[in-house]
Design a protein around this nucleic acid. Structure first.
Lengths: 222, 222
DNA sequence: TTCAGGTTGGTGACATCGTTACTGAACCAC
DNA sequence: GTGGTTCAGTAACGATGTCACCAACCTGAA
């Protein structure tokens, strides 16, 4: 198996040669189709995943069925919060879903433990990833608790637009992004449309005045 | 220095003898007076703390000055989320405050790294602690996003009462516990008092019908 | 003691957000 | 096309957050 993929992870570039060999020979590259539930309540992951291609959405689902997106794992990042669960034999209440087709390196539990033990570089890689995720969670908490919904929605629209100027999502899905209700999204998007910032059609939102959205989004970053 | 303190941490009881020696000889027991800011924005901790006595409150403070309590570290637990920051050289936006006088074992960064490297038991201890904290954060997110404020307040009152039947806190402090506004707390506590569950006086809340509060709190756990 | 100023708590009015209930439009499978 | 399903719009109302203000209380200093 080619070890080229290590280049995609800057934190691993200085990995000691011996450790690099362990990592490449004892891990496998897996393909995960879009929509797959990678981990979830009652389904703890068996491997640490390093994403080569695609995107994983991690979200919390309440007992009443309401959802909120916690963060996304992009190519070049790792599903590292799951390793705590992986090593502690505990279930999370969060779930991870492949938002696109995903290619990833799967590192088995025992190999992960071995790498953490042997390589200071790998340890730094892991703990840096932890730090980023925890910071993300703190931001989510701060936003839910203290930020106005129109600002959060504008930020999310700007965030989810990936150069296309368009977002493929229903109002229900946008509500799940922010942990709010569909009706709230409908009202806010209606207001954005009246202001000429977006155009809507069933299942898609066109961002026609990104600058307008960004001005509103920026109010939350003062 | 006595190594008796290790007995207070069940996860460390099976520690290999050599590793145990490293841990006890290279760490120090420190005393932290009540009210000390142990870590915070711009003040990353230099040590991993294992709490022997006392309690540390970890809270998020927004730029607008509003606060929300994330979790508490009790005796027998560790300030483990800070280790990610400690190893990643990153600052958190959260801060940790000694809520009582605290005695703790301080493990320097280099020693921590060494222990993680050498001991599978220590690794499990650390990752289990991570898992618990992250689960706590998920719960906070779910509560803020989806739970009614009266239920959250009842839960918090039951949680903060430590056998005394009394809570020493202002309405403002209770608001910071839940990330809401003082006025909301005043209204809810007024309602609880009308129902005969509590009595209030300046700076203190007496829980006179704990069962009543628990019934309301239990509605959130269905 | 008395007064000034800060802290704490109570309250009304209003804005924002969430919930409920219902409607119709758009889409899909047959 | 027909019928069922998904998606979006909206009104009414309840719950929560914000703003403004006041009263009660505490503390320290004149």
């Amino acid at each position: 198996m080619s070890a080229d993929w290590i280049k995609q992870f800057p934190g691993l570039s200085r990995l000691e040669a011996a450790v690099r060999d362990v990592l490449t020979t004892k891990s496998t590259v897996v393909a995960v189709p879009e929509g797959t539930v990678i981990f979830g309540p009652g389904k703890s992951p068996q491997n640490l995943l390093l994403l080569l291609q695609g995107r994983v959405r991690v979200q919390q689902v309440s007992e009443a069925g309401r959802e909120i997106v916690l963060y996304r794992v992009e190519a070049g990042e790792s599903c590292v919060l799951t390793t705590a669960c992986l090593l502690a034999h505990e279930d999370y209440s969060a779930e991870g879903i492949a938002e696109t087709n995903v290619r990833a390196v799967a590192i088995p539990r025992a190999v992960f433990d071995d790498l953490v033990s042997q390589s200071v570089t790998f340890r730094n890689f892991i703990f840096t990833a932890y730090s980023k995720r925890i910071t993300d969670l703190f931001q989510v908490i701060e936003d839910i608790a203290f930020q106005r919904i129109d600002i959060r929605l504008a930020q999310k629209l700007v965030d989810l637009e990936r150069g296309t100027g368009q977002i493929k999502a229903t109002h229900q899905q946008m509500a799940a992004e922010l942990g709010t209700a569909r009706e709230v999204i409908s009202r806010q998007l209606g207001e954005f449309q009246r202001r000429g910032w977006i155009r809507q059609s069933r299942g898609t939102i066109d961002l026609v005045d990104l600058a307008g959205l960004e001005r509103l989004a920026a109010l939350g970053a003062e």
